[in-house]
């Protein structure tokens, strides 16, 4: 059995007549945390949306454990154990925390079990289930987004800029939760990030995206920060 779980090969996709991804190739291995970095507009979010079936693939191939998944709808991917924490408008602001969590499940039968998983990482959410999501602070909203993605116990988790605009203590809590999930369940995690400290702190490997392509990747070590910074500098 190969260790490669999610394999993205020469992936092309975009909006309108513009190709944002221009042949991106990346592999997420079993039980690893991979940080995908790059400046704004390079195609990181588009990559996640394309993998999740929210944007049609124009070329290339995405496979999950060797099975092609191009064109599969999000519901199918979620059923296969792929979780997703989006960056853009990621919560239903006018719904309660409970309803936001319920929407990640296909029925309410599994809610009690799922809430226990939420409690494992972010117990404060259970004390405020009836509070509207839109009234949570920025950091609390990020924890809710992550809880919603984790509560279905995915085997693969795609996370888009979860640390954006939140205070270091919350970033630390998120990092702890992600590491715990990987240790306890062996979940493979792809984090799209601009926060270099968080990304290199949580990940085993890194990759850098420029203009819709992966231009470099490597293992996280003492030299990673400098290498990545070179790629990110203008």
């Amino acid at each position: 059995m190969t260790d490669d779980r999610l394999v993205i090969e020469a992936l092309t996709s975009g909006y309108g007549e513009t190709d944002i991804l221009q042949g991106a190739t990346l592999t997420l291995r079993r039980g690893e945390i991979l940080a995908l970095m790059g400046r704004n507009g390079m195609g990181k979010t588009t990559l996640l949306k394309t993998v999740m079936g929210l944007i049609p693939t124009r070329g290339g191939r995405v496979s999950l454990d060797g099975v092609p998944i191009n064109g599969k709808p999000p519901a199918w991917l979620l059923a296969q154990g792929v979780g997703y924490a989006p960056q853009e408008l990621p919560l239903f602001q006018d719904l309660s925390i409970r309803d936001n969590l319920r929407l990640a499940l296909r029925g309410d039968r599994d809610l009690a079990t799922a809430l226990k998983i939420v409690e494992r990482n972010f117990p404060f959410l259970l004390e405020r289930l009836d509070q509207l999501a839109g009234t949570l602070s920025g950091g609390e909203q990020k924890m809710l987004i992550l809880s919603r993605a984790l509560m279905t116990e995915p085997d693969i988790l795609l996370i888009d800029e979860i640390s954006e605009g939140i205070q270091p203590s919350v970033v630390q809590r998120i990092e702890t939760a992600l590491k715990a999930e990987r240790e306890q369940r062996g979940v493979s995690i792809l984090v799209v990030e601009q926060n270099l400290g968080f990304a290199l702190g949580v990940a085993d490997r890194w990759a850098v995206m420029k203009l819709g392509q992966i231009v470099d990747e490597g293992a996280c070590d003492a030299a990673s920060r400098e290498t990545v910074l070179k790629h990110l500098s203008i």
């Binding site: 999740m52 929210l54 709808p73 999000p74 519901a75 979620l78 059923a79 997703y84 989006p86 853009e88 408008l89 990621p90 919560l91 239903f92 602001q93 006018d94 719904l95 309803d99 319920r102 929407l103 990640a104 296909r106 919603r148």
Partner: peptide
């Protein structure tokens, strides 16, 4: 609940697997 999700943000509803 699903209808409310579609009203509020259809893209997110789809991303969460709602048909």
């Amino acid at each position: 609940l699903n209808a409310q999700a579609v009203i509020m943000n259809e893209t997110l509803a789809r991303a969460l697997g709602i048909n």
